[in-house]
Design a binder for these strands. Sequence first.
DNA 1: GGGGGCCGGGAGAGCGCTCTATGCCCCCGG
DNA 2: CCGGGGGCATAGAGCGCTCTCCCGGCCCCC
Lengths: 346, 346
Amino acid sequence: MNRQAPTLEDVAREAGVSRATVSRVVNGVRNVDPAIQDLVRLAIERTGYAPNRAARSLVTRRTGTVALVVSGAGDTSEEEQNAFAARVFADPFFGRVVGGVVGFLRPRSMHPVLMFAESPEARQEVVRYLRQGNADGALVVSTHPDDPLPALLAEAGLPAVLFARPVRPVALSHVDLAHWDGGRLAAERLLARGCRKVATVSGPWAVAASQERLAGFRDTMARGGHPYVPVAEGGFTLDSGVAAMTTLLAQHPDVEGVFAANDLMAQGVCQVLRERGRRVPEDVAVVGFDDSSVAATCRPPLTSVRQPVEDMAAAMARLLDEHVRGLRTDPVAVLFEPELVVRESA
Amino acid sequence: MNRQAPTLEDVAREAGVSRATVSRVVNGVRNVDPAIQDLVRLAIERTGYAPNRAARSLVTRRTGTVALVVSGAGDTSEEEQNAFAARVFADPFFGRVVGGVVGFLRPRSMHPVLMFAESPEARQEVVRYLRQGNADGALVVSTHPDDPLPALLAEAGLPAVLFARPVRPVALSHVDLAHWDGGRLAAERLLARGCRKVATVSGPWAVAASQERLAGFRDTMARGGHPYVPVAEGGFTLDSGVAAMTTLLAQHPDVEGVFAANDLMAQGVCQVLRERGRRVPEDVAVVGFDDSSVAATCRPPLTSVRQPVEDMAAAMARLLDEHVRGLRTDPVAVLFEPELVVRESA
DNA sequence: GGGGGCCGGGAGAGCGCTCTATGCCCCCGG
DNA sequence: CCGGGGGCATAGAGCGCTCTCCCGGCCCCC
């Protein structure tokens, strides 16, 4: 690539018009004589012109880029930083988020830049990145309830949208699921199957979503005549599901139905049950949460409460776009409804 | 954010020096009087200055951004496009690639923008994106051997580095694994365990890596006195591993060792074996490939041929950086050595 | 037939930064 | 005491684009 990239000036000269006219054609604004439009388009074709985005965004103050930030908790050690990305994507959830975000951005010729904010320095880097005008705003997916990044962004007045409602209120828009209803759906399914003895593996206490799923589940079970439901806390990982179910089974060997707060843990639950000689769903029915890819590949395939992650991620991108363009100024919360997907496990 | 972001000019005024001096301090070049440096730094602090990247890259013709492209095959239908991202990240492999890339980029204040090129339009978009100067170059991970993107990039003279050697030679640098040696390591392990009857689940024929892993495995088995090794072709997915193993087991019920060309398929292999009443590794030893996260979470944990994906990804980023900065002009191939990680499955 | 509005196009001023050319000042040698 | 040189800062010219004026011509209406 020795030859310089053609500029607006070159195209203008080629077409025999002014820079401004070419710019108008490129951006499709104002009325330009159709004949001249063709002339310009031809010149663009001939010169192989591609508008320089740096120059454009220098004046428009827009970049067409958004930061997609996966934000961790406090202070991840230096060594763990490299593994953070791999760990994050080990959960099929994030692939779906990326898919949803890209689905919205692509038709608009926008692009996501991937950032990880699992340490104080990394968080500062995110803020700096946005302040420098590298991206128009941030889509933040927190893996930890105490994530300080949202507050940092709000404080700096940077456009951002969160996945899930933050524990501490922050002046940012977010999307979320009606977790309580998700818990309800799981309970209704187990009740409908006639399960008498029911237990649940919840997510981490500190996570609001865990609490709500649990509340929805318990309230509904109570209404169905089962006021007491044993709970074991998990950490949304397969291993934690195994551990929680092992505990539950020791205390309640006669369990007939289990609700796990995500599919990964439900998979662990199934493993433990099978190893202990219980058949799923004949002896014990299992309901998962998320309807992620593991729900389908699990043995047996999991009945799961579907979280429309792609739609939620797309909505995040849409909200951010509206904030960036000034179409929306006040923070807003968009709530999605879960749905029960019945497979074999319950 | 109503107040305008401070500019170099503002800082210069605040510090009582010229724009150029502030620029020198910010970029740490040339000799600037230490006293004045402090003065400037103080002014930067006070004004909360952050250099505008668009303006900078307009003159430096560098962006500090690289495109991380996951490139598919031919023409994915419109509906599938959204799911492509999710499918891609369902393979733990990509999470590791992202981790390796970010590990290299971050210390240099560079960032990856995620792109998917699974349709002709999407490929054009990648080329356009780079030609517009949105990113300095591309890191390309192809999921399909016939991927036309590398040729497109080479033709346009855009800096790019590939993961894995392309089938059709292309004037681009790439990193790759010594796949043949990987196959050899798997064979040696099964031979050392005394497996007599051995079979293998290969990757797709069209993929060069599959061929080489298979060749290394077969050649080594032959040298060990087993000239005939049954093969079933898989597609690097869990389902395809299940299907392939089902076929193999039907034809060779007395199999004692299985080499699967990646961990996902090895997991499928283990599932089938367990369902058919075979114990792993007591009855049948299983060796996987990649040493991905599923290798550790699989039951039993998989003995696997480790592919240093993070290192390879980091090397891609480093090569791209060298190409972009003109430190390297001719394409180069960097080869990595696999390593056997012994767990329980073999 | 003349004036005002409107439409299509051009000129030029920046956007915020880098970097070259230039100038100032001080120190040193003759 | 003067000329020369080197360190350190400044001035200013762009980088490629958008966008606000502004101007010329045409149409329409009175």
